[in-house]
């Protein structure tokens, strides 16, 4: 059976929090175009916001001269968003699911975004090659895969 060709869309943007809104609009529109319902499109948009916020704050230390690459791939069964940076990487697998009570007591705030990404998307994959290219790939299937 012939498979429909995937469509890809790219956005390259300065790593500044004021651009999060542009990223969200870009991703939201493409999620709707892919056929996701409004509620799910909102969840995808939030997951991408979290990934980009991590890049801005942690990979680039709020250096707005650095760039974030966002590539969105739409095909018949999914939307896949790859967020790339060339900053310093980190090891998300080492982050446990946040213990909120301990968080509150220590007034720490990190780690919530990664937990949200994992909760909202079907697949979240990190690949790190610090200062060369780090990527986070977020995937949402139109029909959730069964194990």
């Amino acid at each position: 059976m012939k498979k429909r060709t995937a469509l890809t869309y790219n956005l390259k943007i300065a790593a500044a929090t004021e651009n999060l809104e542009i990223v969200r609009d870009f991703v939201h529109k493409l999620a709707i175009k892919a056929g996701f319902e409004e509620e799910v499109a909102g969840q995808i948009e939030l997951a991408v916001d979290e990934a980009c916020t991590n890049v801005i704050r942690h990979a680039y230390n709020n250096n707005r001269r650095r760039k974030i690459d966002i590539r969105v791939l739409l095909d018949s069964d999914k939307i896949q968003i790859r967020i790339s940076d060339t900053g310093k990487g980190f090891e998300p697998e080492a982050l446990p699911k946040p213990d909120l009570k301990a968080y509150v007591q220590s007034s720490k705030r990190g780690g919530l975004g990664i937990h949200l990404m994992r909760s909202l998307m079907d697949d979240v994959e990190f690949r790190f090659n610090p200062t060369k290219k780090n990527t986070v790939t977020l995937t949402k299937y139109k029909r959730k895969k069964t194990a």
Binding site: Y103, S107, R109
Partner: peptide, 17 residues
């Protein structure tokens, strides 16, 4: 209309005090 974990982190940062 919208909140990300950055906003939620503020609630957590202040509640203990």
């Amino acid at each position: 209309d919208y909140i990300s974990s950055a906003g939620l982190g503020v609630f957590m940062g202040f509640i203990e005090e």
